[in-house]
Design a protein around this nucleic acid. Structure first.
Length: 383
RNA sequence: GUGAGUAUAGCUCAGCCGGUUAGAGUAUCUGGUUGUGGCCCAGAAGGUCAUGGGUUCGAAUCCCAUUACUCACC
């Protein structure tokens, strides 16, 4: 994996980059659609590639390990083959899932014991094991096993947790160096910086991980309920601790405005369930604010979701029809809404790249956020 | 035609030996959703308790009549 910064914005920390993997080039800043179980929910690959123009998708070690299991993935020739996706894939390690989905987890020095949310069976994840599973998956970018702290989190626990993540990071790196890819394509490994909301801990965490020389670095443990200003402040603080020549990934973020603010603070990569999950709940993003397409106000609104959008959904269907599909609980509603929201996110980061190149990112960002955070109903009332 | 039963929110039904402002589920309407369970959470609106009469301090609840529907038998 190779990463180069092509251009630094003259008025902010935003940067334009290129991340090269054996499955293709990723232009940064980028948003990665989430495909937890080897599918971006409700979206066929052909739309991901040709309409949405996703450059990389994210999948999940925890979920794929539990189902279908590494044996099937290896027999299939890896996840790329299995799901017929020939572009890059990043896999989250499952750390977050163990800490968010499992009440009964037992944290130990070398790993974590948890029970499957599917059948209750007991499993044990260690850094070595998680690297092994990601070798079976064959993801282009693997993530280390970490502990994601909740919010709020007291300093004592945050420190202990950060130390554990750092200790595990060493084991992740060792396992990474001792093993090889199974399918002839190289795999990179990213470290995850923790430390909750404490700058002192974030700084220690960053230093400890940078010493291990990962291929890239993620900021974890944010967007878990802390105030937005706190998150932005920590992102800004943490990117200063991260190497300039390595990609920076803010995990699980977020709303469109969160992404733009974080790009301005030097982040290159994002993932979030929001465009897809919210799509399935009739929450659609537009340049002039979001709209809840289920609302009665769209009953006979025959305009597209977003007149400026070039996605398959907007080019072919109306708000009224989308609302009808949601009310009738038709599967197509989920598909069309997901396609739109994902393309909205991919268009947003593409425009961000253009404005970084043009050195007017911050002006564009402020203007865009202003429109984005308007509710569309407020807009039509103003008319 | 005879007998029995039912009637309460848009729908399916609780409540009925009389006693605060008649409830639930669902549907509807509004919010929420940040390293994904199409889940879930929160709030709102919605009633001439079939109709008319009676008993009673007080009736969705007890009595009578009417109407509609259901079932069984002619």
């Amino acid at each position: 994996m190779k990463f180069k910064v092509l251009h630094n914005d003259q008025n902010s920390k935003a940067r334009l980059g290129e991340l090269e993997t054996d499955h293709g080039i990723i232009n940064t800043p980028i948003f990665m659609p989430v495909g937890t179980q080897g599918t971006v929910k409700a979206v066929p690959n052909i739309f991901l590639k040709e309409d949405i123009k996703a450059e990389i998708i994210l999948s999940n070690t925890y979920h794929l390990y539990l189902r279908p299991g590494t044996e099937i993935l290896e027999s299939a020739g890896g996840l790329h083959q299995f799901m017929n996706w020939d572009k890059p894939i990043l896999t989250d390690s499952g750390g977050f899932q163990i800490f968010s989905l499992n009440e009964l987890r037992k944290l130990k020095r070398d790993g974590v014991e948890f029970s499957s949310h599917i059948d209750g069976s007991k499993h044990y994840f260690t850094p070595e094991k998680v690297i092994g599973i990601q070798r079976s998956i064959g993801s282009d970018i693997m993530m280390v096993l970490d502990e994601c702290t909740p919010y709020p989190c007291d300093y004592e626990y945050a420190k202990k947790s950060k130390d554990l993540t750092s200790r595990w990071a060493i084991l992740n790196k060792e396992a990474f160096e001792k093993t090889n890819p199974l399918y002839g394509k190289s795999q990179a490994l990213f470290g995850i910086i923790q430390g909750s909301v404490y700058k002192e801990l974030r700084e220690e965490s960053a230093r400890e991980l940078v010493d291990l020389d990962f291929n890239g670095y993620a900021i974890g443990g944010l967007a878990v309920g802390e105030p937005m200003e706190t998150m932005y402040d920590l992102v800004n603080f943490t990117t200063d601790m991260m190497p300039v020549n390595k990609p920076r990934y803010l995990m699980g973020v977020g709303r469109p405005e969160n992404i733009l603010e974080s790009i301005e603070r030097g982040v290159d990569m994002f993932d979030c369930v929001m465009p897809t999950r919210n799509a399935r709940n009739a929450y659609l993003f537009t340049k002039n604010g979001y709209l809840t397409i289920r609302n009665a106000t769209y009953k006979s609104d025959f305009r597209p979701i977003d007149e400026t959008c070039d996605c398959y959904t907007c080019k072919n269907f109306t708000r009224s029809y989308l609302r009808h599909l949601f009310i009738a609980k038709e599967i197509l509603a989920l598909e069309l809404a997901s396609i739109h929201n994902l393309k909205f996110y991919l268009n947003l980061v593409r425009e961000a790249r253009e404005h970084i190149k043009a050195n007017d990112f911050s002006i564009w960002k402020n203007d865009t956020i202003k429109k984005l955070t308007n509710n569309i109903k407020t807009n039509s009332e103003e008319k």
